[in-house]
Design a protein around this nucleic acid. Structure first.
Lengths: 204, 204
DNA sequence: TGCCAAATGGCACTCAGTAGCACTTGACAC
DNA sequence: GTGTCAAGTGCTACTGAGTGCCATTTGGCA
């Protein structure tokens, strides 16, 4: 999210979103995910149940902000390079874009705390990750000029790239001081030889 | 699933499961996922709504069979090698086990047809994939003697390995004639140099 | 100050998912 | 065969997720 929202309206929205997420985090840890209703979360955040759904798509996505915007940012990042650039350069821009776009540290930390104990929360986050993998795989397939269904390399390198992103975020969680995009970029650079080896895989 | 269930009871169970999955596949394609209720599916399969939930955990998992059993099979496969074997040997056994255990071609094809159009169905399948990635990552971390949260390699190689599995299944979908486990094993073998390159990643 | 649009709250509704209990039907011993 | 047991099933009732609609409030702006 923007670090300093413009008007009062935008500031209040951010405040409401964080209040809902904080309430959910607290309640999930106090009594568990299943035992917490959306009514509970909304009441704890002093808004109506109806408002909860105006901020989040569901109980399992209460730590996820604007997934459509993130996917759009990924697509933009993949498309904005020069036509002749190496395949990996586009992937690097993609993961860095995901790590910077709309990055809300408090929600990332909340998901990292609740996710391991509540599979539904982890699965919700993972569902969007699949879209990133699809976008990355399509980019690689187009770049190599191969069929996504016949050649395994685009999918494998896409999965590995998302794993790099997740590993980078995990490293950032251990060390808040650095910028998440920078940590992810570092991780990607160290993984580059491995990603190149995937692209060098024999195709048949 | 077992190709030839033992008694009448077991055969009827398999029949009911497939009837539900077939009805769901047909209805999803006819009128879409959201417009299909579980009542519709159960009615089309001539069972009660209550029975549907005795076979599947939810509408989004109507093509998924016994995920706990698959995860257990993975853990068994990872554990059964000799202590000194190479890390990749255990991973190979793991994905081959996943490709063979409880493999029901009709349901795999159904999920492949509906998944791309219905994100909820795809997400349900991928949710279990996360557990496999966790298991594989833990295996690799233990094998390398490193911390899963500090060293990115276990997660990246685990993601890539699951991508190999998915790519193998995708290849099998294009060519039913071969055994799925065999196709996955082939894909894994071609990816081996790339997986080794991931393990060779600099750690800091 | 007054208008407009965004945001919210409340209500009513559908449907997913669960619990409990009664009933039916394979499996198996005799 | 016959009886017994357990697995599987149907039915009913309930909670809670998620949505559509409309009235009300509130911030942005002329």
């Amino acid at each position: 999210m923007d670090p300093i929202p413009q008007g009062l309206r935008e500031r209040k929205k951010l405040e409401t979103r964080l209040a809902l997420a904080r309430a959910a985090l607290r309640l999930f840890e106090e009594r568990g995910y299943a035992a917490t209703t959306i009514d509970d979360i909304a009441a704890a955040a002093n808004v109506s149940r109806r408002t909860f759904f105006r901020y989040f798509a569901g109980k399992d996505e209460v730590f996820i902000v604007d997934p459509e915007g993130k996917l759009a940012a990924l697509h933009v990042a993949l498309a904005e390079g020069p036509p002749e650039e190496p395949t990996l350069a586009a992937l690097r821009r993609g993961v860095v874009a995901l790590a910077s776009a709309y990055f809300e540290p408090e929600l990332v930390r909340a998901e990292a705390r609740v996710g391991p104990r509540e599979p539904a929360v982890a699965a919700a986050g993972f569902a969007y990750q699949v879209q990133w993998e699809d976008a990355l795989a399509a980019e690689v397939a187009a770049d190599l000029g191969v069929d996504l269904h016949a050649d395994p390399r685009p999918r494998i390198v896409a999965h590995a790239t998302v794993a790099v992103l997740r590993a980078g975020i995990a490293a950032w969680l251990q060390d808040d001081a650095r910028d998440p995009a920078e940590v992810v970029a570092d991780t990607f650079d160290r993984a580059t030889p491995a990603l190149e080896a995937i692209l060098a895989m024999p195709t048949a």
